[in-house]
Simulated scan of single mutants.
Amino acid sequence: MSEWAPKRFYDHATVEPVGAGWTVHLDARPLRTPGKSPLVVPTPPLAQAIADEWQAQEGTIDPTAMPFTRTANSAIEKVAPQRAEVAQMLADYGDSDLLCYRADHPEGLVRRQAEGWDPMLDWAERTLGARLEPRTGVMHAAQSPAALEALSARVHALDSFELAAFHDLVSLTGSLVLGFAAAEGQDGDTLWALSRIDETWQEELWGVDDEAHATAERKRAAFHHARRFFALCKAA
């Protein structure tokens, strides 16, 4: 027996202003989260992306085909009630940022990490006001408190919708710096490749594992979605 799926019960999904934000109406019915909270987002383009997902549903409603709706639901139901805790969890990545932990061999990997990651640490110093220092090996070594404080302040300044997207930008790459670079609009493909320097090196040595590759592709798609969601939170 196939799993039950709700049937489409509306003709049109439209964007409507509500208070200081924007929502989606399914015909005359305002959209709500699974927990029955009003689904209100900060910008018209983000609301339109959600409306487009609902308008594209045919026959039955497939939640897996609505990533913007899912992320908005998460922002409202999961992030907003504990925004400070989520922000601090993400800020903590600064003290163990992927870009700071370097291999000591082989020479080719050491060089590739330096060529890819050093410019991003320089960018963070210029743009974010935080200098993170690389170290060799995997043992934790604390970063400068001033640098961590500067990064933390920027994370805590994000609203719940931005944080919902930023969570994936950081957790999928393992890097607070790469997360900020994505949020600032840097090229997503380049940033994703930088986050996978170690994995790419291993694939070049030993070949591609099909299952690992499929998992990486799902994460790459999620990263690009999070980057787009964050941009729509800022769009006029």
Rank of each mutant, 00 (worst) to 15 (best):
W22Q: 00
V86T: 07
F161G: 01
W123E: 01
E16G: 08
R111W: 10
R227Q: 15
A142W: 02
I61Q: 09
H140R: 14
V110A: 04
A51Y: 10
A182H: 05
R227C: 14
H12F: 14
T71H: 07
Q113K: 12
Q57G: 06
R228Q: 11
P34R: 05
A165Y: 10
T43I: 03
M1D: 04
P134C: 02
R112K: 07
E204S: 15
E203A: 13
T14M: 01
H224L: 04
G19K: 01
F9A: 03
T33M: 01
D209V: 11
L46H: 12
A222H: 03
E199G: 14
R135I: 07
D118R: 12
D27R: 10
A84S: 11
C233E: 03
E162Y: 10
G207W: 10
G59L: 07
V86Y: 01
L232T: 04
Y10G: 02
L176I: 01
A231Q: 15
A212Q: 11
T127C: 15
D62F: 08
D210N: 09
K219M: 04
V208Y: 15
P42F: 12
A142H: 08
A124L: 10
S2K: 04
R8G: 03
A214P: 08
H224E: 04
A157G: 14
Q57K: 08
P6W: 07
H12W: 09
A87Q: 08
P45D: 07
R196N: 08
R32E: 09
W192Y: 15
A221Q: 12
V155D: 01
L121F: 11
S152H: 07
M1F: 09
Q82P: 00
R227D: 04
E3I: 02
A84D: 13
F230N: 00
S144K: 06
P30R: 01
R32I: 00
D159A: 02
A72Y: 09
H224R: 14
A72Q: 07
A49S: 12
P6Y: 07
G59W: 05
R126E: 05
G174I: 07
A212W: 10
A212D: 14
E3D: 09
G35W: 10
H167M: 09
L148C: 13
L172G: 06
P38L: 00
A114S: 14
H225S: 09
W123R: 01
Q113P: 05
V18P: 01
L232I: 03
N73Q: 01
G94W: 02
D97M: 02
L194V: 11
L163K: 11
F229S: 01
A114D: 12
H12C: 03
R220W: 11
E199R: 13
H213N: 12
M89T: 03
L98I: 02
P106H: 11
Q186L: 13
A183K: 00
L26P: 03
L191W: 10
T64D: 15
A84N: 12
M1W: 05
P6F: 15
W206L: 01
E115M: 07
E58M: 04
D11I: 11
E3N: 13
A103K: 08
V18G: 00
L158W: 05
M139I: 05
P45T: 03
P134Y: 10
S37A: 12
Y93Q: 00
L109I: 06
S37T: 10
M139W: 07
M120Q: 14
F68G: 05
P67L: 06
P134K: 11
C100N: 10
F223W: 03
G21P: 04
D118N: 15
T173H: 15
V86H: 04
P119W: 05
H140D: 03
S74N: 06
